[in-house]
């Protein structure tokens, strides 16, 4: 697969990542008219807008989102409603935004994308699985280009995860998003070739989808069409 574009934003100064700022999220909200979208969705839409740049989406463009914790701020806001108010009075908007594929719906509406959109959730190499799935979609003719976007938002659950399972979750997990625009066409190649090898993958068990391979993200930030990236 060829990498047409790559973006990475984090609230921490990670190698290869641009800083995730309130201004970036505000710009995304304005550009995509995200009136009600939550933070997780805004992260995903930010990456989608940056990946496509001035290009238009077409029916051959697929979207695969990946996350471990997903939109837990909104999920927990829904639980707040249930705990604090009569059961029949929870806010419908909060509930509908707590669904994992709400972000994909916003990307679709913002970019007028009618290609296949799939939301993945998991704790074991979910970004790698999403990239493999993009490859499957491209080779299977379901799309001609695929966006893969993985995001984690800072929420009570991610803040407490280390306390609850210190061996598995790092303290002070960053918030952010990474996105790939992928294609099989050499004409779309801007950042090099991405080679996936499931059997070689040993160090990506981090549940934090975009923190899994700092070297790759660092290399991609400065890559050109002649680069070769292994994952």
């Amino acid at each position: 697969m060829f990498i047409g574009n790559f973006v990475a934003y984090s609230d921490q100064a990670l190698p290869g990542f641009e800083l995730l700022t309130p201004e970036l999220l505000k710009r995304t909200r304005e550009r995509a008219t995200l009136r009600r979208a939550d933070r997780y969705t805004t992260l995903i839409v930010s990456a989608a807008l940056a990946l496509l740049g001035d290009d238009a989406a077409d029916d051959g463009l697929a979207l695969i989102t990946a996350t471990a914790f997903g939109t837990h701020r909104t999920t927990f806001s829904t639980l707040d409603d249930i705990l604090d108010f009569p059961e029949a009075q929870i806010l419908p908007t909060r509930f509908s935004h707590s669904v994992h594929n709400a972000a994909a719906a916003y990307v679709g509406a913002a970019l007028k994308m009618r290609g296949p959109a799939i939301a993945l959730a998991g704790f074991e190499q979910v970004l790698c699985e999403a990239l493999e799935l993009a490859k499957t979609f491209l080779h299977g003719g379901l799309c001609t280009r695929a966006m893969v976007i993985a995001a984690e938002e800072k929420a009570l659950l991610t803040e407490k995860a280390h306390e609850l399972w210190p061996e598995r979750f790092a303290a002070d997990m960053p918030e952010g998003v990474v996105g790939f625009l992928l294609s099989l066409s050499p004409q779309d190649n801007r950042r090099g070739r991405l080679l996936l090898d499931r059997s070689a993958r040993v160090s990506l068990s981090s549940p934090f989808t975009f923190g899994g391979d700092a070297k790759l993200f660092q290399a991609l930030a400065h890559a050109d069409a002649t680069s070769e990236h292994h994952l």
Partner: peptide, 26 residues
């Protein structure tokens, strides 16, 4: 919660090493 995501849980239970994904597309 972390270890129960269905596809990953099945992959572990059955000791498989192929792809495992949970599709959360409503």
């Amino acid at each position: 919660y972390v270890v129960s995501a269905p596809a990953e849980w099945l992959r572990r239970e059955l000791k498989l090493d192929g792809p495992a994904i949970n599709v959360s597309n409503a």
